[in-house]
Protein backbone atom coordinates (compact mmCIF):
# COMPACT_ATOMS: atom_id res chain seq x y z
CA UNK A 1 0.00 0.00 0.00
CA UNK A 2 2.73 2.36 1.13
CA UNK A 3 4.89 1.40 -1.82
CA UNK A 4 2.03 1.94 -4.27
CA UNK A 5 1.46 5.42 -2.90
CA UNK A 6 5.14 6.29 -3.16
CA UNK A 7 5.13 5.03 -6.75
CA UNK A 8 2.10 7.12 -7.70
CA UNK A 9 3.51 10.24 -6.09
CA UNK A 10 6.83 9.72 -7.81
CA UNK A 11 5.27 9.16 -11.22
CA UNK A 12 3.49 12.52 -10.97
CA UNK A 13 6.62 14.41 -9.96
CA UNK A 14 8.58 12.55 -12.64
CA UNK A 15 6.20 13.79 -15.34
CA UNK A 16 6.63 17.38 -14.14
CA UNK A 17 10.42 16.99 -13.97
CA UNK A 18 10.58 15.61 -17.50
CA UNK A 19 8.47 18.47 -18.84
CA UNK A 20 10.88 20.94 -17.25
CA UNK A 21 13.85 19.11 -18.75
CA UNK A 22 12.16 19.08 -22.17
CA UNK A 23 11.57 22.85 -22.06
CA UNK A 24 15.10 23.65 -20.93
CA UNK A 25 16.89 21.40 -23.41
CA UNK A 26 14.70 22.48 -26.33
CA UNK A 27 15.29 26.20 -25.89
CA UNK A 28 18.88 26.10 -24.67
CA UNK A 29 20.24 24.17 -27.63
CA UNK A 30 18.52 26.63 -29.95
CA UNK A 31 20.17 29.58 -28.23
CA UNK A 32 23.60 28.05 -28.75
CA UNK A 33 25.03 29.22 -32.11
CA UNK A 34 25.26 26.73 -34.96
CA UNK A 35 22.72 25.88 -37.64
CA UNK A 36 22.11 22.18 -38.26
CA UNK A 37 20.93 22.81 -41.79
CA UNK A 38 24.07 24.73 -42.69
CA UNK A 39 26.09 21.71 -41.52
CA UNK A 40 24.19 19.37 -43.83
CA UNK A 41 24.57 21.36 -47.05
CA UNK A 42 27.66 21.53 -49.22
CA UNK A 43 29.57 24.85 -49.07
CA UNK A 44 28.14 26.17 -52.36
CA UNK A 45 24.47 25.95 -51.36
CA UNK A 46 22.26 28.92 -52.15
CA UNK A 47 20.01 30.86 -49.79
CA UNK A 48 17.13 29.18 -51.53
CA UNK A 49 18.42 25.68 -50.71
CA UNK A 50 18.81 26.63 -47.08
CA UNK A 51 15.28 28.03 -46.90
CA UNK A 52 13.82 24.89 -48.49
CA UNK A 53 15.63 22.58 -46.08
CA UNK A 54 14.63 24.80 -43.15
CA UNK A 55 11.02 24.44 -44.21
CA UNK A 56 11.42 20.66 -44.58
CA UNK A 57 12.56 20.33 -40.95
CA UNK A 58 10.06 22.93 -39.73
CA UNK A 59 12.87 25.24 -38.67
CA UNK A 60 11.15 28.22 -40.31
CA UNK A 61 8.30 28.17 -37.80
CA UNK A 62 8.44 30.09 -34.50
CA UNK A 63 10.32 28.45 -31.61
CA UNK A 64 7.14 27.98 -29.61
CA UNK A 65 5.39 26.34 -32.55
CA UNK A 66 8.41 24.06 -33.06
CA UNK A 67 8.32 23.13 -29.40
CA UNK A 68 4.61 22.36 -29.60
CA UNK A 69 5.09 20.09 -32.59
CA UNK A 70 8.03 18.29 -30.99
CA UNK A 71 6.32 17.87 -27.61
CA UNK A 72 3.11 16.49 -29.10
CA UNK A 73 5.26 13.99 -30.98
CA UNK A 74 7.18 13.05 -27.83
CA UNK A 75 3.98 12.39 -25.92
CA UNK A 76 2.98 9.94 -28.65
CA UNK A 77 6.42 8.28 -28.54
CA UNK A 78 7.75 10.07 -31.64
CA UNK A 79 10.99 11.87 -30.80
CA UNK A 80 11.50 13.05 -34.38
CA UNK A 81 14.14 12.13 -36.93
CA UNK A 82 17.86 12.52 -36.52
CA UNK A 83 19.16 15.18 -38.88
CA UNK A 84 22.48 13.45 -39.53
CA UNK A 85 21.46 9.81 -39.84
CA UNK A 86 17.83 10.40 -41.01
CA UNK A 87 16.59 7.67 -38.72
CA UNK A 88 13.97 7.92 -35.94
CA UNK A 89 15.60 9.30 -32.78
CA UNK A 90 13.83 6.88 -30.47
CA UNK A 91 15.25 3.82 -32.25
CA UNK A 92 18.76 5.26 -32.30
CA UNK A 93 18.68 6.20 -28.65
CA UNK A 94 17.14 2.96 -27.41
CA UNK A 95 19.68 1.02 -29.48
CA UNK A 96 22.52 2.68 -27.58
CA UNK A 97 20.86 2.70 -24.15
CA UNK A 98 21.77 -0.92 -23.21
CA UNK A 99 25.48 -0.25 -23.73
CA UNK A 100 25.42 2.71 -21.34
CA UNK A 101 23.20 0.95 -18.82
CA UNK A 102 25.50 -2.06 -18.73
CA UNK A 103 28.54 0.16 -18.30
CA UNK A 104 26.92 2.20 -15.50
CA UNK A 105 25.67 -0.84 -13.65
CA UNK A 106 29.03 -2.58 -13.91
CA UNK A 107 30.66 0.60 -12.58
CA UNK A 108 28.13 0.76 -9.73
CA UNK A 109 28.79 -2.87 -8.79
CA UNK A 110 32.55 -2.30 -8.82
CA UNK A 111 32.12 0.89 -6.75
CA UNK A 112 29.97 -0.89 -4.17
CA UNK A 113 32.41 -3.80 -3.90
CA UNK A 114 35.51 -1.62 -3.63
CA UNK A 115 33.87 0.99 -1.38
CA UNK A 116 32.20 -1.64 0.77
CA UNK A 117 35.44 -3.56 1.19
CA UNK A 118 37.29 -0.35 2.12
CA UNK A 119 34.62 0.62 4.65
CA UNK A 120 34.44 -2.81 6.27
CA UNK A 121 38.22 -3.17 6.47
CA UNK A 122 38.54 0.36 7.83
CA UNK A 123 35.93 -0.34 10.49
CA UNK A 124 37.41 -3.72 11.41
CA UNK A 125 40.84 -2.16 11.91
CA UNK A 126 39.68 1.24 13.13
CA UNK A 127 42.26 3.33 14.89
CA UNK A 128 45.15 1.43 13.29
CA UNK A 129 47.48 2.19 10.40
CA UNK A 130 45.28 0.11 8.10
CA UNK A 131 42.46 2.60 8.59
CA UNK A 132 44.79 5.51 7.99
CA UNK A 133 46.02 3.89 4.76
CA UNK A 134 42.44 3.37 3.58
CA UNK A 135 41.63 7.02 4.33
CA UNK A 136 44.58 8.16 2.26
CA UNK A 137 43.62 5.86 -0.64
CA UNK A 138 40.05 7.17 -0.46
CA UNK A 139 41.29 10.75 -0.57
CA UNK A 140 43.42 10.10 -3.65
CA UNK A 141 40.62 8.20 -5.41
CA UNK A 142 38.19 11.02 -4.72
CA UNK A 143 40.38 13.94 -5.74
CA UNK A 144 41.17 12.61 -9.22
CA UNK A 145 38.20 12.86 -11.64
CA UNK A 146 36.93 9.79 -13.51
CA UNK A 147 38.27 10.74 -16.95
CA UNK A 148 41.77 11.13 -15.51
CA UNK A 149 41.45 7.69 -13.94
CA UNK A 150 40.47 6.55 -17.42
CA UNK A 151 43.73 7.89 -18.85
CA UNK A 152 45.74 6.40 -15.99
CA UNK A 153 44.11 3.01 -16.55
CA UNK A 154 44.71 3.17 -20.32
CA UNK A 155 48.38 3.87 -19.67
CA UNK A 156 48.70 1.14 -17.05
CA UNK A 157 46.63 -1.73 -18.39
CA UNK A 158 46.30 -0.79 -22.03
CA UNK A 159 49.81 0.32 -22.86
CA UNK A 160 52.35 -0.70 -20.21
CA UNK A 161 50.77 -4.04 -19.30
CA UNK A 162 48.21 -4.58 -22.05
CA UNK A 163 45.78 -6.96 -20.35
CA UNK A 164 42.52 -5.14 -21.14
CA UNK A 165 41.06 -3.69 -24.33
CA UNK A 166 41.09 0.09 -24.42
CA UNK A 167 38.64 0.74 -27.22
CA UNK A 168 35.15 -0.30 -28.26
CA UNK A 169 32.58 -2.55 -26.65
CA UNK A 170 33.47 -5.89 -28.23
CA UNK A 171 36.12 -7.15 -30.64
CA UNK A 172 34.67 -6.23 -34.09
CA UNK A 173 35.70 -9.47 -35.81
CA UNK A 174 33.58 -11.56 -33.42
CA UNK A 175 30.31 -12.98 -34.69
CA UNK A 176 27.54 -11.81 -32.36
CA UNK A 177 24.44 -13.98 -32.10
CA UNK A 178 22.62 -11.43 -29.93
CA UNK A 179 19.01 -10.36 -30.37
CA UNK A 180 19.19 -7.50 -27.86
CA UNK A 181 21.81 -4.84 -27.32
CA UNK A 182 22.43 -6.00 -23.74
CA UNK A 183 25.61 -7.81 -24.80
CA UNK A 184 26.93 -8.39 -21.30
CA UNK A 185 23.71 -9.91 -19.96
CA UNK A 186 22.78 -11.77 -23.09
CA UNK A 187 26.18 -13.41 -23.52
CA UNK A 188 25.86 -14.60 -19.93
CA UNK A 189 22.32 -15.90 -20.44
CA UNK A 190 23.35 -17.70 -23.61
CA UNK A 191 26.32 -19.11 -21.70
CA UNK A 192 28.67 -17.78 -24.36
CA UNK A 193 31.42 -17.23 -21.82
CA UNK A 194 34.01 -16.59 -24.56
CA UNK A 195 32.02 -13.57 -25.75
CA UNK A 196 31.28 -12.55 -22.19
CA UNK A 197 34.98 -12.51 -21.34
CA UNK A 198 35.70 -10.39 -24.41
CA UNK A 199 32.96 -7.91 -23.50
CA UNK A 200 34.07 -7.70 -19.86
CA UNK A 201 37.64 -7.13 -20.97
CA UNK A 202 36.41 -4.17 -23.04
CA UNK A 203 34.15 -2.78 -20.33
CA UNK A 204 36.29 -3.28 -17.26
CA UNK A 205 38.55 -0.26 -17.58
CA UNK A 206 35.89 2.36 -18.42
CA UNK A 207 33.72 0.90 -15.66
CA UNK A 208 36.60 1.00 -13.19
CA UNK A 209 37.42 4.60 -14.13
CA UNK A 210 33.80 5.56 -13.43
CA UNK A 211 33.75 3.50 -10.25
CA UNK A 212 36.88 4.74 -8.46
CA UNK A 213 35.58 8.16 -7.27
CA UNK A 214 32.21 6.66 -6.29
CA UNK A 215 33.96 3.82 -4.46
CA UNK A 216 35.86 6.41 -2.43
CA UNK A 217 32.64 8.20 -1.48
CA UNK A 218 30.94 4.94 -0.50
CA UNK A 219 34.02 3.87 1.44
CA UNK A 220 34.23 7.05 3.50
CA UNK A 221 30.54 7.46 4.19
CA UNK A 222 29.87 3.82 5.01
CA UNK A 223 32.89 3.64 7.28
CA UNK A 224 31.75 6.73 9.14
CA UNK A 225 28.25 5.42 9.74
CA UNK A 226 29.56 1.92 10.54
CA UNK A 227 31.80 3.38 13.22
CA UNK A 228 28.88 5.31 14.69
CA UNK A 229 26.67 2.23 14.61
CA UNK A 230 29.36 0.17 16.34
CA UNK A 231 28.83 2.26 19.49
CA UNK A 232 25.08 1.74 19.67
CA UNK A 233 23.51 -0.29 22.46
CA UNK A 234 22.37 -3.23 20.36
CA UNK A 235 25.87 -3.70 18.99
CA UNK A 236 27.31 -3.59 22.51
CA UNK A 237 24.73 -6.13 23.62
CA UNK A 238 25.67 -8.38 20.70
CA UNK A 239 29.31 -8.25 21.82
CA UNK A 240 28.38 -9.69 25.21
CA UNK A 241 26.89 -12.67 23.41
CA UNK A 242 30.33 -13.81 22.33
CA UNK A 243 30.32 -12.84 18.66
CA UNK A 244 33.58 -11.87 17.03
CA UNK A 245 34.27 -8.38 15.76
CA UNK A 246 33.79 -9.29 12.09
CA UNK A 247 30.45 -10.93 12.71
CA UNK A 248 29.29 -7.98 14.81
CA UNK A 249 30.18 -5.60 11.98
CA UNK A 250 28.57 -7.66 9.24
CA UNK A 251 25.50 -8.92 11.01
CA UNK A 252 24.63 -6.22 13.55
CA UNK A 253 25.98 -2.97 12.16
CA UNK A 254 26.20 -3.18 8.36
CA UNK A 255 22.53 -3.15 7.45
CA UNK A 256 21.67 -0.23 9.72
CA UNK A 257 24.78 1.68 8.69
CA UNK A 258 24.06 1.13 4.99
CA UNK A 259 20.84 3.13 5.04
CA UNK A 260 22.29 6.66 5.06
CA UNK A 261 24.91 5.60 2.52
CA UNK A 262 22.24 4.28 0.17
CA UNK A 263 20.59 7.67 -0.34
CA UNK A 264 23.89 9.23 -1.24
CA UNK A 265 24.84 6.39 -3.56
CA UNK A 266 21.62 7.03 -5.46
CA UNK A 267 22.51 10.68 -6.01
CA UNK A 268 26.12 9.84 -6.84
CA UNK A 269 25.06 7.14 -9.28
CA UNK A 270 23.31 9.77 -11.39
CA UNK A 271 26.59 11.72 -11.48
CA UNK A 272 28.29 8.51 -12.55
CA UNK A 273 25.85 8.16 -15.45
CA UNK A 274 26.69 11.73 -16.40
CA UNK A 275 30.35 10.72 -16.31
CA UNK A 276 29.75 8.04 -18.93
CA UNK A 277 29.60 10.77 -21.60
CA UNK A 278 33.30 11.56 -21.39
CA UNK A 279 34.43 8.07 -20.39
CA UNK A 280 32.64 6.49 -23.37
CA UNK A 281 34.35 9.00 -25.64
CA UNK A 282 37.71 8.21 -24.08
CA UNK A 283 37.29 4.46 -24.59
CA UNK A 284 35.40 4.75 -27.93
CA UNK A 285 32.60 2.86 -26.23
CA UNK A 286 29.47 2.72 -28.37
CA UNK A 287 27.02 4.11 -25.82
CA UNK A 288 24.63 6.99 -25.38
CA UNK A 289 27.32 9.35 -24.14
CA UNK A 290 29.45 8.92 -27.21
CA UNK A 291 26.36 9.42 -29.34
CA UNK A 292 25.53 12.59 -27.39
CA UNK A 293 28.92 14.13 -28.15
CA UNK A 294 28.53 13.33 -31.85
CA UNK A 295 25.05 14.80 -31.82
CA UNK A 296 26.30 18.03 -30.24
CA UNK A 297 29.18 18.30 -32.72
CA UNK A 298 26.76 17.84 -35.64
CA UNK A 299 24.09 20.12 -34.13
CA UNK A 300 21.66 17.21 -34.48
CA UNK A 301 18.96 18.94 -32.42
CA UNK A 302 16.31 16.16 -32.33
CA UNK A 303 18.93 13.61 -31.32
CA UNK A 304 20.33 15.83 -28.55
CA UNK A 305 16.81 16.35 -27.23
CA UNK A 306 16.08 12.65 -27.32
CA UNK A 307 19.30 11.74 -25.48
CA UNK A 308 18.83 14.38 -22.79
CA UNK A 309 15.23 13.30 -22.18
CA UNK A 310 16.37 9.69 -21.90
CA UNK A 311 19.10 10.65 -19.41
CA UNK A 312 16.46 12.50 -17.40
CA UNK A 313 14.26 9.41 -17.40
CA UNK A 314 17.20 7.31 -16.18
CA UNK A 315 17.99 9.78 -13.38
CA UNK A 316 14.45 9.80 -12.04
CA UNK A 317 14.25 6.02 -12.33
CA UNK A 318 17.44 5.68 -10.27
CA UNK A 319 16.05 7.96 -7.58
CA UNK A 320 12.84 5.99 -7.47
CA UNK A 321 14.76 2.72 -7.21
CA UNK A 322 16.75 4.14 -4.27
CA UNK A 323 13.58 5.15 -2.44
CA UNK A 324 12.07 1.70 -2.94
CA UNK A 325 15.26 -0.05 -1.84
CA UNK A 326 15.33 2.15 1.25
CA UNK A 327 11.85 0.98 2.14
CA UNK A 328 12.88 -2.64 1.65
CA UNK A 329 15.98 -2.31 3.86
CA UNK A 330 14.32 -0.32 6.61
CA UNK A 331 11.52 -2.30 8.26
CA UNK A 332 10.28 0.80 10.08
CA UNK A 333 9.32 2.39 6.76
CA UNK A 334 7.84 -0.75 5.30
CA UNK A 335 5.32 -1.20 8.06
CA UNK A 336 4.53 2.45 8.61
Amino acid sequence: MQILRILLMRLTTTAITLLGVAIIVFFVIRVVPGNPVAMMLPPGATEDDIARLNALYGLDKSLVAQFGIWLSGVVQGDFGTSITSRQPVLGLVLGRLPATLELSIMALVIACLLGGAAALTGTRYRGTRTEAAIDVADGVALSVPDFLWGLVLILLFGVLVPIFHISGRVTPSLDLPFTTNFYLFESLLRLRLDLWADIVSHMFMPALALAIPLAAIIGQLLKQSLKETMNLDYVTLARTKGYGETRVILREALRNAALPTLTLVGVQFTFLIGGTVIIERLFSYEGLGNMAIDAVINRDLPLIQGIVILFAVIFTAVNLAVDLLYAVLNPRLRHA
Partner: peptide, 15 residues
Protein backbone atom coordinates in the same frame (compact mmCIF):
# COMPACT_ATOMS: atom_id res chain seq x y z
CA UNK B 1 27.27 -14.40 31.42
CA UNK B 2 24.62 -12.12 29.99
CA UNK B 3 23.50 -8.50 30.13
CA UNK B 4 20.10 -6.99 30.75
CA UNK B 5 20.65 -3.54 29.28
CA UNK B 6 19.42 -0.19 30.51
CA UNK B 7 17.41 1.08 27.58
CA UNK B 8 15.18 -1.46 25.84
CA UNK B 9 14.40 1.02 23.06
CA UNK B 10 17.97 1.03 21.76
CA UNK B 11 19.16 -2.42 22.78
CA UNK B 12 17.39 -4.40 20.05
CA UNK B 13 18.65 -4.30 16.49
CA UNK B 14 16.01 -2.36 14.51
CA UNK B 15 16.56 -4.29 11.30
Amino acid sequence: AALIPQDPLTALNPS
